[in-house]
Design a protein around this nucleic acid. Structure first.
Length: 856
RNA sequence: GCCGCCGUAGCUCAGUGGUAGAGCGCAUCCUUGGUAAGGCUGAGGUCGGCAGUUCAAUCCUGCCCGGCGGCGCCA
């Protein structure tokens, strides 16, 4: 029969799967369910190898679980709203809906070509009214429950384009199109009350043993529950409060009440009511506050900006040292959203405070003494001391460790009536308003007499207009009078639609529930959701470790409280794959260039990249996460066109553990392709002539059972690279047994090989299965079992070390006791010869591992 | 700046408290009835740096250097 030709075999088997409707998932209480899900893609229009890696992993899990007898749900859909469609519209005049629809069509066919075991009948796209209409219904339920509300939030404002920008669109503090200096501006925004679930979300992490530790740590840090102190500093009599609100003093929050004696200033955020009040009375303060607002809204931008301060002239009293006056500053590094929007600064023990104190010549008083340091000479200069130690220079706190000092300071403040211990979260409510036209419209109506009126359920979905007009700056929805102007559902007077749309993270916070019955006339089919949820294995990029996963966990709990879901955690198993990175290439003009357009030469270790078309030298940039915007994507089709889809699937899962980032290179893909050919050759060479059993059959059986066990465990543990390595070994072992083992034994081995390779190279596996004379699809075949008796090893080779260096080895029965190994080693003539008369001081035996002789 | 991760052969990456490995590339040879190829053999490593723990550290701990991801409007 000759070589295996993927070009012929692969389309054939994909058609066979479609014909058999092999991957349809049906509600079936009689079978154990398994829900395998990969994070649904944004339809950028082109699949890259990062996608391929993601979906190949999920597919291995889905096919493996099917073979193990589960009723598997493995759906696919599109995260179809978002900024790129709007950018395409503004740049090239393409309609976002058409652009998105075309991209989905292109990516769907690319995904289908990967041969994924997906139930395509459940496909959904978040930009379809059938999806976002149900989302609007969910939003209204949250609104009713008080979990959705409006408040002021900060946005990046581009004063030239008169528009709100995404953080991504702010580059070095300037708008990416206009180049104007961006400022933070307050806008009325819809928020979801995720903070109401802060404790639950934090404590729920403990019930997710199927999540990577690092993701749980990141979420824990993100929620950032801290126990600290809110305390109020009384205004000094000589500087009375400038506003009635401050007559009771200035409240701050701190997580370090132990360092109160080291306080040398107070600082309020530029957005603090005090700063705003002072700005009203002083042009200079107003100018300063304005200056602080330059730049974007992101925490990174705020924290890395140069520290700016303004001394208000106000003074407050220190709670423990009545004679001490502390100045009150306005400082740009204080965040209004966190704590009280005001802090006390202790420069010796906080780097930000120290930077600020140095710049404005404020006192630096150390109050925590590191262990072993001399209180007479310990000073803090350029670097704040944040480690452990004992309190000094701190009155009644002297001698206490940090935790004891915190408790003591809090109880003293409480007894003085100046404040109380408090729990504060870093987590803030989730701002979901977007001033963008390509998103889910927020289903409310603003009426001048009735206020905010929810759109009645019977009027849902609130559809986006058929055409969006991008000819003006700002939000096309706000310009579309015909769309915007409606009658108030309550009083019937003229009213206006909300023109904000929902953050696309809302779309992705419940799609996994919609997949359980994507055509239901209710947002969520409670019965289907109860059967299929939670997702047993969720696979996606580690870049979603915090936001998407936290939002989805939050919405799941909110919907549980609405009795729409019966679970509190949506994803019991989570696997975060590493990112696939690739070098970036840029022309001198700054334009990004795709890898396929570039040729790399290497001269004496120096790599030079040139454009294939013109020979122009292009700049080689650092490897970064593949993204369409930087054009550093590589298409899986580049491999599949040459070697077939199975080789591409196998290759993207080879070599590297799935959770690691990998720098993309296609060198080595030939290895995957050769494996497939070698595997096929074994099946192709299978002769049906009966043969007597051979004494070597047992050896091949042992190899087979060990391989099946190892591969099964590797897949269960998400070590796909190890599983593939074992498949390489297994196929080599079968080949080596060709002349020794009988045909019967080799048939058994090959039957196992076909089934263990099927999750990785499903097309080839079908071809091999048919070659063995099987008439059903391997997609329906059960996973091979292994016999524990054939798996055990009865002998071990232990390395023998003398003084930590390997000097020989010894063969012992598996499980041999330390005493027995010691006796055998000491009796071994080769070992004793190497001792050269040294006296043995100690013998260390690690059973089944190693022996070390300590000798002198 | 803060949080999380990574650093092993020319390249891309496995791995383990004890013997340093694979694929590709490179060199050499064999086969030509597995041939739009296949196979043998080989060279190549201060396991990022320094210190500590240990009988023993590439692995554990700490510090340093370099890179990546996230930091609430990219998805």
């Amino acid at each position: 029969m000759g070589r295996y030709d993927p070009k012929i075999a692969e389309p054939h088997w994909r058609a066979a799967w479609a014909q058999a409707d092999a991957f349809r998932a049906d509600y079936d209480l009689s079978r154990p369910k398994y829900y395998a899900l990969e994070m649904f893609p944004y339809p950028s229009g082109k699949l890259h190898v990062g996608h391929a890696r993601n979906y190949a992993m999920g597919d291995v899990v889905a096919r493996f679980k099917r073979a193990r007898g589960f009723n598997v749900l493995h759906p696919m859909g599109w995260d179809a709203f978002g900024l790129p469609a709007e950018n395409a519209a503004r740049d090239r005049g393409v309609d976002p809906r058409e652009w998105t629809t075309q991209n989905i069509a292109a990516m769907r066919s690319e995904l289908k070509a990967l041969g994924l075991a997906i139930d395509w009948s459940r496909e959904l796209a978040t930009c379809e009214p059938d999806y976002y209409g149900h989302q609007q219904a969910l939003f209204l339920r949250l609104l009713k429950r008080g979990l959705a509300y409006r408040r002021e939030g900060l946005v990046n404002w581009d004063p030239v384009d008169m528009t709100v920008l995404a953080n991504e669109q702010v580059v070095d503090g300037r708008g990416w199109r206009s180049g104007a200096l961006i400022e933070r501006r307050k806008l009325n925004q819809w928020c979801l009350r995720i903070t109401a679930y802060a404790d639950e979300l934090l404590e729920g992490l403990a019930e997710l043993p199927g999540w990577p530790d690092k993701v749980r740590t990141m979420q824990e840090n993100w929620i950032g529950r801290s126990r600290g102190l809110t305390l109020t500093f009384a205004m000094a009599p000589e500087t009375p409060a400038p506003t009635p609100a401050l007559e009771g003093g200035l409240s701050v929050y701190t997580t370090r009440p132990d360092t109160l004696f080291g306080a040398s200033f107070l600082a309020v955020s530029p957005d603090h009511p005090l700063a705003e009040a002072l700005a009203k009375g002083s042009r200079e303060v107003a100018a300063f506050v304005q200056k602080c607002r330059l730049g974007g809204t992101s925490e990174a931008e705020i924290e890395s900006a140069e520290k700016l301060g303004w001394d208000t002239g106000l003074r407050v009293l220190h709670p423990f040292q009545p004679d001490l006056r502390l100045p009150v500053w306005i400082a740009n590094f204080v965040l209004m959203e966190y704590g009280a929007g005001a802090i006390f600064g202790c420069p010796a023990h906080d780097q930000r405070d120290l930077d600020f104190a140095i710049k404005y010549s404020l006192p630096i008083r150390p109050v925590v003494l590191p262990h072993g340091a001399d209180p007479g000479t310990f000073h803090v200069k350029q670097e704040a001391y944040t480690g452990p130690g004992r309190l000094f220079n701190s009155g009644f706190l002297d001698g206490l460790d940090i935790d004891a000092a915190k408790r003591a300071a809090i109880s003293r403040i409480e007894s003085l009536g100046l404040g109380s211990g408090a729990t504060v979260y870093r987590l803030r409510d989730w701002g979901v308003s977007r001033q963008r036209p390509w998103g889910c419209p927020i289903p409310v109506i603003h009426c001048s007499s009735c206020g905010i009126v929810p759109v009645p359920d019977s009027d849902l979905p609130v559809r986006l207009p058929d055409r969006l007009d991008f000819s003006q700056t700002g939000n096309p929805l706000a310009h579309d009078r015909a769309w915007r102007e409606v009658n108030c559902p309550q009083c019937g007077a003229k009213a206006e639609r909300e023109t904000d749309t929902l953050d696309t993270f809302v779309d992705s916070s419940w799609y996994f529930a919609r997949f359980t019955d994507p055509h239901s006339s209710d947002p969520i089919n409670v019965k289907a959701a109860r059967y299929w949820l939670p997702v047993d294995q969720y696979v996606g990029g580690v870049e979603h470790a915090v936001l998407h996963l936290l939002y989805a966990r939050f919405l799941t709990r909110a919907l549980q409280d609405e009795a729409l879901l019966s679970i509190s955690e949506p994803f019991v198993g989570l696997f975060t794959q590493g990112m696939v990175t690739h070098e970036t290439y840029r022309r001198q003009s700054g334009e990004w260039v795709e890898p396929t357009e570039v040729e790399i030469e290497s001269n004496a270790g120096v790599r030079v990249a040139r454009l294939k078309s013109t020979g122009e030298v292009v700049l080689i940039g650092d490897p970064e996460k593949m993204s369409k915007s930087k054009k550093n994507t590589v298409a899986p089709a580049d491999i599949a066109d040459v070697h077939g889809v199975d080789a591409a699937r196998l290759f993207v899962l080879s070599d590297s553990p799935p959770d690691r980032d990998v720098q993309w290179t296609s060198s080595g893909v030939e290895g995957a392709s050769r494996l497939l050919q070698r595997v096929w050759a074994e099946f192709d060479a299978l002769d049906e002539t009966p043969e007597p059993r051979s004494p070597d059959d047992l050896s091949l059986a042992r190899i087979t059972h060990r391989a099946v066990k190892a591969i099964t465990e590797a897949i269960d543990g998400f070590r796909f690279n190890s599983a593939i390595a074992r498949i390489y070994e297994f196929s080599a072992a079968i080949r080596n047994a060709r002349s020794t083992a009988s045909i019967t034994a080799r048939r058994d081995a090959l039957s196992a090989l076909a089934r263990v390779i099927a999750p990785f190279a499903p097309h080839l596996a079908e071809e091999c299965w048919r070659r063995m004379g099987e008439t059903r699809l391997i997609a329906f075949a059960p996973w091979p079992d292994w016999d524990p008796a054939l798996v055990v090893e009865d002998q071990r080779v232990l390395p023998v070390q003398i003084n930590g260096k390997r000097r020989g080895e010894i063969v012992v029965p598996a499980g041999a006791s330390s005493e027995m190994v010691e006796r055998l080693v000491l009796a071994d003539p080769e070992i004793s010869g190497k001792l050269e008369g040294l006296a043995i001081r100690k013998v260390i035996v690690v059973p089944d591992r190693i022996v070390n002789l300590v000798a002198a």
